[in-house]
Amino acid sequence: MLNPVQTIIAKELRSYFVSPVVYVIGAIFLAMVGLLAYSTVASASNQALRLMQIQNTYAQLNLNELLFRPLFRSMNLILIIVIPLLTMRLFAEERKLRTFELLLTSPIGVNEIVSGKYMSVLIIYSGMLSLTALIPLTLAAYATFDWRPIYLGYVALLLQGGLMLGIGLFASALTENQIIAAFLSFGMILALWMVGALSTAIGDTSLGHLLSYISFTEHFERLIRGLLNLKDILYYLSGMALMWFAAHQVVDSYRWK
């Protein structure tokens, strides 16, 4: 017997996989990551060659710094485009097709609906992300590198994706138009990213610190450097909880309109 959240998750996964959405998004994501990984590896080996010519010795290169960090940063960028496409249908489609009336007149709570939907996209995203683990696993056969920043990089990508999915979930609850939902989440994620750039411009003031805390850039950067800080993990988890709550409030407010 499935509980209500599991029922919603099962239905969402079914809907994602019977439509081409997941396949298209997954293919785009994996193709882009694969291409970036290839070009990063290529540029890393170029750099190694040049160093060898200059120093005329075999240089011990730090692959984590040269390869994985730029790759994780690029993956983060790809997520900004991919995640809104994944989450746009979550609530928008239900409202458009009026299936929301069924959910809201069934003995199931708004928190269960929102949690079920959030978890379903988290599962799909985790699946997509785990496929990219082939990249470090393949490279491990040819090179040696420190695994800790790789593990933490994946933790960072998982949390980063989770936060973006939460933003997408919230944006999808705001409108019944999927395209608008996608642009809204894209805009919100981009804004959160730019806040980080602004904080570097402002510099070492209390406002600068606040802005850099709000933006994900610094938290993400610390994790992919292999630094595990509780406050970075807390940043992501609280952001995800906040987005869940915001989506919940919006869905709950439908009945008052």
Partner: peptide, 22 residues
């Protein structure tokens, strides 16, 4: 409801199973 609340991508059986569960 006035517009039947249907998930167009599901089969009749899958849909009714989902409704029964919720």
């Amino acid at each position: 409801p006035e517009t039947p609340p249907l998930y167009l991508e599901l089969t009749v059986e899958e849909y009714l199973t989902f409704v029964g569960r919720i």
